[in-house]
Design a protein around this nucleic acid. Structure first.
Length: 937
RNA sequence: GCUCGAGUGGUGGAAUUGGUAGACACGUUGGACUUAAAAUCCAAUGAACAGUAAUGUUCGUAUGGGUUCAAGUCCCAUCUCGAGUACCA
């Protein structure tokens, strides 16, 4: 009887679907366990073999936890709002919902073929009304909240209003935009509604403001920094410009410190935490104020090196700094104006490629050093960024390389404040190994003492204060797109008003065109029905807008990360239409126990979602502040692209080993036409694309060899391996095992189809153990000691490996086990049962099939997951870990029955220990639980 | 530039965290079965040298040094690759 994976896999996939085998219950006496994958964006290209890597690992873990007696939640869904569907809609006029649904069915089909144990009854799609209804509600909550620094949490805006009404704002310590004037309760009460609203916007966690954004004219939308690569849009590679626009932002910066500290409480990969730490970018330093000659305001600068305050020899402002136009002297006006204009025109891309060149202009104004009253020239330069710190820098050329370069370039004097340090070639940037000089009473101090004294001195004269600065900036929340969540917002004049949550969702309207309108409004501006009737509380035609009871609605939509920032909570109770999830379900499932996904989301999704959860936690809407206890980063599976070299401008192609003295370029060819020896099937190539039809191919020995390179798998590189193909040829169980076998889960690795025969023949061998006579046959006598030994060795190894997510080595352990059993000709029932249970998380179909065959033989009891029994390994000889004085450790091959004297003898005979023991004397040998031996010398 | 991470056979990768390096798999070679092929099974497979042979010797985890009875693993320096970040004051 052959191993017919096709029938077996079909049969069990249908069985699981019909019986809802993997449906998780919200009420259970079993302990809960929540295993989550990052949900995919359903793209038109379908899945390739790289996508399922994480899903296979999480599925193995889920199935393992079920066997261990947990109530496992293992859901899946789709992040179905996004740009590609919209781009496609623009090109074809088809509604994004339609293409998204088609892509989802294709994804589902492919996922089902791999035998995943997802609970599909909980499926979610971020683009469904009954999902984004809750995203809209959470936006309203953000809008209606402010961040109280004193109690370190978000609170209801009503509380803030009542403080304003009774005490004004002078005692409020809140995260807020701009510097707001202080006001008394009397003043507040006298303000108009519009004025109050304007002030409140500066406190709200979701707020409107005029900001510099990355505008992509080609896509007609604003992009986040992480959606831009090398100054071009991540998608499409279009040009990106900087432009001022009124946008919604989320005040994530209020949570900087908590997001940073919270990293200590979660079991996430260290490199990923490091990335988040760098992104949040905490730096401790001080704000220092510099007076300006003939100007009534002071320039504030942030510095981490107050100790170098006496080394300041000039000031630099960002060209966008608000003071520039006020302080510039008349005779300097012309060059300053030119410089500002020039740098405003520069795109981010140009600024980046321009890092090396030094530019700047003197304003003619002077600042006054706060401690020694020296006059300092004030310059402007675009190496100072308007968006970081205060947009102004105290320049210390002897201690900062950029200031140094600037000073050298413009011949500004450089003062050395580091004793005996040579600064003739470059600045001395270290914070260690120096003492200060030329610094009045800081002379002779090191970094730490200098910093403290300088800060204290500045504080005394009211010119400086300790300050912590973060790089993390507020997140832009508006997108000029169609295919996203509409804001539940209408406008009374310029003030945004939230629609009452009773009337959610505010559904996405249909439009004729998905492009921005001709006058530059977002695509929703194309809708004829996009106004809010406050009497009937529904969306009505634009023509009815009267600004009395019918108002225009917000035209922007929310960004991709809105829906993905809280979806893990929705799975707990995804069909609830009263709440985003019931209190009971939230309290039962609490948080994700294991979350699997790529590290490319480190500073995007994985940061935003942490923020979002903290916010919900502050409002007491979720029971835990960290939504994912443990995170595993799966690496990418890369493609092995094939290239042929073409002589530039001709139709001549050369096999790899031919070296020609002509200019050639490499052209991608489909990897399907290349065999394992890198030989190209020329006939297939000629039929593939017309350019190759009559081309001239030159090779040695009739074999045309391609050039290989490892790259990301993508349709455009013709290196995609489709999982369906592998399932057809080898079966899902083989693919699952092979993807795990390929290497450590977190590592990026190239796909190589050739290696798959190893795992395939392993499954065949396993199957043949019990089909050696042609029919299914097992022996129900007591198992032999040898087979028990190998079984228990394997149990131990598998359990350890799964817990460490070291799934590649566990596949090896299975192979060793089956090879051993097969050479023992073991077809014992007890062994079979235990082994299939052990293997079932990895290769579930084949194991189900064997259990089914066992049906009527089901007389021997066995554990749901086999328990390791060390007795079976200890038989005869075994490698014992040995330690000396509880310190040094190594392995010693000993027989189990040896006495102390015999152990002593064995030790002395071991040549590894010869030198060590020649210097010491064995005093005592301690044998603990027959396992660990400690030797006291 | 800065911050992390990694360099092990022809290839993917193991190594119980300092204890016999190269598990397991691919590939390659040889053999069995077969009219033949496929499939399957068995054996060999880091390199060099010696031996008819069993076997033995030497070298070997990017490079150079160090600590230790013992180093792929720890320390220092150098080189290479990958990821993140980008004038962050």
């Amino acid at each position: 009887m052959l191993y017919n994976f096709k029938d077996i896999e079909n049969k069990w996939q249908n069985f699981w679907a019909e019986n809802n085998t993997f449906k998780a219950e919200n009420n259970s006496t079993l302990p809960k366990f929540y295993v989550l994958d990052m949900f995919p964006y359903p793209s038109g290209a379908g899945l390739h073999v790289g996508h399922p890597l994480g899903y296979i690992a999480s599925d193995i873990y889920s199935r393992y936890k079920r066997l261990k007696g947990f109530n496992v939640l293992h859901p899946q869904g789709y992040d179905s709002f996004g740009l590609p569907a919209e781009q496609y809609a623009i090109q074809t006029g088809r509604h994004p919902l339609q293409t998204t649904n088609e892509n989802i069915s294709r994804y589902r089909e492919q996922l089902d073929r791999l035998g995943f144990s997802f609970d599909w009854s909980r499926e979610i799609r971020t683009s469904n009304k009954n999902y984004y209804k809750w995203t809209q509600l959470m936006f309203i909550k953000l809008f209606n909240s402010w961040y109280d620094i004193d109690s370190n949490k978000s609170k209801d805006i009503k509380e803030l209003i009542s403080i304003f009404e009774s005490n004004g704002n002078s005692n409020v310590n809140a995260s807020k935009s701009d510097v707001i004037k202080t006001f008394e309760s009397k003043e507040w009460n006298s303000y108009s509604l519009d004025k109050k609203e304007e002030i409140l916007l500066n406190y709200r966690l979701a707020y409107l403001s005029e900001i510099d954004v990355n505008w992509c004219p080609k896509l007609g939308t604003v992009l986040a920094n992480d959606e831009i690569i090398d100054g071009l849009s991540e998608r499409g590679g279009h040009e990106v410009l900087r432009k001022k626009m009124t946008q919604w932002s989320i005040r994530i910066s209020a949570y900087s410190e908590r997001l940073l500290n919270g990293l200590n409480d979660i079991d996430w990969p260290e490199p990923l935490k490091e990335m988040q730490r760098n992104w949040i970018g905490k730096s401790e330093g001080a704000m220092v104020s510099f007076d300006v000659e003939n100007f009534d305001k002071q320039i504030e600068v942030f510095t981490t090196r107050v100790d170098t305050i006496y080394g300041v020899s000039f000031m630099t402002l960002a060209p966008e700094h608000p003071f520039v136009k006020h302080i510039t002297k008349d005779e300097n006006l012309e060059p300053v104006k030119n410089y500002i204009e020039k740098s405003a025109k520069k795109t981010e891309r140009e600024r980046m490629s321009d890092v090396k060149s030094i530019s700047g202009v003197f304003t003619g104004a002077y600042a006054i050093h706060p401690l020694n009253n020296e006059k300092l020239e004030i310059w402007i330069s675009d190496y100072v960024l308007a968006g970081y710190g205060t947009g102004a820098v105290m320049a210390v050329p002897c201690g900062d390389q950029r200031d140094y370069n600037f000073a050298k370039f413009f011949n500004i004097p450089i003062k050395n404040i580091f004793l005996d340090k040579d600064i003739s070639k470059e600045a001395f940037q270290s914070k260690e190994d120096f003492v200060l000089t030329n610094s009045e009473d800081l002379d002779g101090l090191n970094f730490k003492d200098g910093l403290n004294l300088a800060t204290n001195k500045l504080q005394e004269i009211n010119k400086g204060v300790r300050k912590i600065n973060y790089k993390l900036r507020d997140a832009v929340f508006s997108r000029q797109r169609y295919w996203g969540e509409p804001f539940p917002v209408y406008y009374k004049g310029n003030s945004p008003v939230m629609i009452d949550q009773k009337y959610l969702p505010v559904a996405l309207p249909d439009v004729d065109k998905y492009l921005p309108t001709e006058d530059g409004k977002p695509p929703l501006g194309n809708s004829k029905e996009w106004a809010w009737d406050t009497i009937n509380n529904k969306v009505v035609a634009n023509s009815l807008v009267d600004n009395k009871s019918v108002f225009r609605l917000e035209l922007n939509t929310m960004p991709g990360w809105a829906g993905s920032s809280w979806y893990f909570n929705r799975y707990m109770d995804s069909n609830n239409d009263q709440e985003f999830a019931s209190k009971e379900s939230l309290n039962y499932w609490k948080e994700v126990d294991v979350y699997i996904g790529g590290s490319e989301h480190a500073t995007g999704h994985l940061l935003y979602s942490r923020f979002w959860q903290y916010f919900l936690y502050d409002l007491d809407l979720v029971p835990v502040k960290d939504y994912a206890k443990k995170l595993i980063n799966q690496g990418m599976i890369l493609g092995n692209s094939a290239f042929i070299s073409r002589e530039v401008g001709t139709d001549n192609y050369f096999s790899k080993e031919i070296v020609k003295n002509v200019k050639t370029q490499l052209i991608h060819v489909d990897v399907q036409f290349v065999d394992t020896n890198n030989e190209l099937d020329l006939d297939a190539l000629r039929n593939w694309q017309p350019q190759f039809k009559n081309a001239n191919f030159e090779s040695l020995n009739q074999k045309f060899i391609v050039h290989r390179e490892v790259e990301k798998m993508s349709k455009s590189k013709y290196n995609v391996i489709n999982p369906d193909q592998i399932c057809n040829d080898y079966g899902a169980d083989t693919l699952r095992l092979y993807e795990m076998f390929l290497g450590p889960i977190e590592q990026a690795k190239p796909w190589n189809t050739a290696g798959i025969s190893g795992t395939y023949s392993f499954l065949k061998k396993f199957w043949n153990l019990f089909h050696s006579t042609g029919e299914f046959y097992v022996d129900d006598n007591d198992p032999s000691k040898e087979s028990l030994k190998i079984l228990h060795k394997t149990i131990k190894k598998i359990e350890e490996d799964i817990n460490n997510f070291s799934l590649n080595t566990s596949v090896s352990a299975f192979m060793i086990c089956v090879n051993e059993l097969s050479s023992q000709k073991c077809n014992n029932l007890y062994i079979l049962k235990n082994l299939t249970i052990l293997l079932s998380p990895f290769a579930p179909h084949i194991c189900e099939e064997i259990w089914n065959k066992l049906g009527n033989l089901n007389t021997i009891s066995f554990e749901p997951f086999p328990i390791f029994n060390p007795e079976f390994i200890k038989e005869n000889s075994f490698e014992y870990p040995v330690s000396f004085n509880g310190k040094m450790k190594f392995k010693l091959n000993l027989e189990a029955s040896l006495g102390v004297e015999e152990i002593k003898k064995t030790l002395q005979e071991d040549e590894r220990l010869e030198k060590y023991l020649s210097q010491r004397e064995i005093k005592k040998i301690i044998v603990v639980t027959g396992k660990i031996i400690n030797i006291v010398c």
